[in-house]
Nucleic acid binder design. Sequence first.
DNA 1: TTGTACGCGTTATCAG
DNA 2: CTGATAACGCGTACAA
Lengths: 330, 330
Amino acid sequence: MSDVAKLAGVSTATVSRTLQNPETVKEETRQKVFKAIKALDYMPNVLARQLRRMETKTILVVVPNIENNVFSQIVGGIDAVANERGYKVLLGNTNHRVEKIYDYIDHFKQRQVDGMIVLLSNLPDPVLQDLANEFPIVVTPDAKATVEVSTVTLDNVESGKRATDHLLKLGHRRIAHISGTLDITSSQDRLQGYQQAIVEGGYFVDHTLIKEGDFTFSSGFEAMSALLNTSVPPTAVFCASDEMAMGAIKSIKSRGLKVPDDIAVVGFDNIKFSEVFEPTLTTMAQPLFQMGKKAMTVLIERINNEALEEQHFIYQAELIVRESCGVIFR
Amino acid sequence: MSDVAKLAGVSTATVSRTLQNPETVKEETRQKVFKAIKALDYMPNVLARQLRRMETKTILVVVPNIENNVFSQIVGGIDAVANERGYKVLLGNTNHRVEKIYDYIDHFKQRQVDGMIVLLSNLPDPVLQDLANEFPIVVTPDAKATVEVSTVTLDNVESGKRATDHLLKLGHRRIAHISGTLDITSSQDRLQGYQQAIVEGGYFVDHTLIKEGDFTFSSGFEAMSALLNTSVPPTAVFCASDEMAMGAIKSIKSRGLKVPDDIAVVGFDNIKFSEVFEPTLTTMAQPLFQMGKKAMTVLIERINNEALEEQHFIYQAELIVRESCGVIFR
DNA sequence: TTGTACGCGTTATCAG
DNA sequence: CTGATAACGCGTACAA
C-alpha cells in the first residue's frame, strides 16, 4: 500500500480512503491512486483489514453430512446469497458427531467468522442458547421451539397432514407412517401432521401402523417389512423421506405386491431420483434452495444488527403427485 | 493477551511462547501462564496471528456444483483430512460458470487462503499454469496433462477398458458407448478405454455406436433412444455415468425391451442409487472419498514446501457387478 | 480534502 | 529461559 501511495504521490491514508470511501477523495486524486493501483497490480491485504475491522466476511455452515443431498441443496442456496453479498462460506462437517461442533464454536470466539448457520445439529438447548445470545446464528431446517434463535423451517405438521390427506382422499383408511428419527422436531411434526389428518378425517390413529425409521433406504425397507408381517397390513404408507419410501417400495415388491395397486406410497423431500425411481414417487417437495437463501439473508441481517429480535420463517412443502400413490397415472 | 501476561506476572512474549512452543518455557512459568489463561478464559485472536504469520490455515475448494454427489463425496474426503490437520475448508461454488473462479483466485492474492483444490474447472491452461506456479494447488478428479500441477485422478482409460471388457467377456459384440461431455479429459479417456478394449479384443470400433452425453439422466435417455432408432441397435451399452445409465435403461424399457436380457448396461460412479435402481446397476466405483483425502494431503505437502515437484496420483476404479449387465444374477 | 500517527493482537528478533 | 520492542498492513481519529 505504501508503494501505491508513493507512486501516486499521496499518503497511505488517502489510498485507504480511495478504496473505502471514494466519495471523500477528490476526483483527481482518486484517479491518480487508481492508476497507481493498476500499475502495481496492488491488492489489499485482507488479513490486515480483518484485524483492523474485527470482521471476516466469512460465515460458518455447520452441516451433519455434506454428502447428503438435502443438506447440499441448502448449502447451495446459502452459497448463492453469500456470493452475492460478499461473504465467504466456511464448511463445517460434523459427520453426525455432535462434539465436533464445539470446535467450530471456537471459531466464533476467535473471531474467525462473523456468523453461523446450523443445519440440524443436535446441540443441547442451553449451549445453543448461550451461543445465539452472543453471536449471529440461524438454525435450519430443523429447529426446536425451545430455543430463542432465528430459524428457517418447513411447516412439517402441515406437510405431514397434506401428504396423509392425499392418501385419505384416494380412499385409503389403513394408512401407515414410517417416521424419521423421532429425536428431531421435523420427524415429530410430520408424525403429528399424519395423526391430525387421520383424526380430522374422522378416523382413529392406529399406533401399530407407526414405525420409526432413520431416513435411510434400509430403515424404510425394514419398517415396511414389519408392517407387512402384521395380520392386517396397511393399504397406504406415508414415509418421512424419499429414501425410506424407496426402501418401503422395495420391500413391498419383494413380497410380490404392487405399488400403487396393492399399496400406495408417499415420500418426502423430492430428491432427484424420486422421478427416476419406478414407480416415480409422489412426494412432498421442500424448497431447500430457497430455504438456504433465506437463512443466509436473515443471518446477514443479524450480523448487521438490522434484525434485533429473532425471526422465524416457515416454508410450505409442495405435494408432487406421481405414480406411487395411484390414480393420476392409472 | 496482555491481561494474561499481567495476571501471570510475565511478558506477552512469554504467553505467546507458552502457546506456540511450550517446550521453550520453564515448566513453572508454563503452569502460571496456563492458569491465567484458564482464569481469564482467554482465546488468542486468530486474525492477529494470521496477519503476523501471513497464513490462514484455510484452503479453498473450487467446485462446479456442490449439489452433485460426486463432488460432495470428494469434498467429504478433503474435509476429513483438513480437520485432522487443522485446516479449514472454504467452499467455492462456481455453478459451472468458469468466470466465477477468477473471484476465488483473488483470495490467493489477498492471502485469504493458503492453498486451493480445484475440482474440474474448465480454467484455461495458461491461467491455471500461472496460478500453479505461484501458489499451492491440486487439481482433481479431472486434470489435463498439459499443465504442470499436482493432480489426483482416476485411471479413466483403464476404467473404460475394464467396463467394456466385462461386456465383451459376457459375449457382447455390438457394444455402444454414451460418453460424458467430451471437453473434459475423463470423458475422453473413458471413451479411449472403450475403444482400446474393443480393438484389443480383435474387433472394430463402430463410430455410430458412440454418442456424447453430458452425464445427466436425460442425456442418457436421449442418447439411448437415438441408438435404439438405428437399424441394428447395440446389445450392450457402457455409460460414462450412472445417471446416464439410468436414463438409458429408462429409454430401453420404454421400448418394451428388458435390461439386461435384451440390452446389458454398465454405468460409472457407483452413486448411492445405483443399488436401489431396478435393475441394480453394474458400475465402475471411483474411490472419491479417498481421492479427496489424497488431494488434501498432497496440498498440505505443497503448502509446507515438502513437495517441490508436482506429483500425480492415479487411482483405479473397481468394477461392481450387479444386475444390469446380466449373468451373475440370472 | 489530505496527512500524521496510533492501534488492532500477535509473533519474531535480539539482547540479556 | 525471559523481556523489550519492532513489525505485520490497514483504517481512522484528529489535526491541518
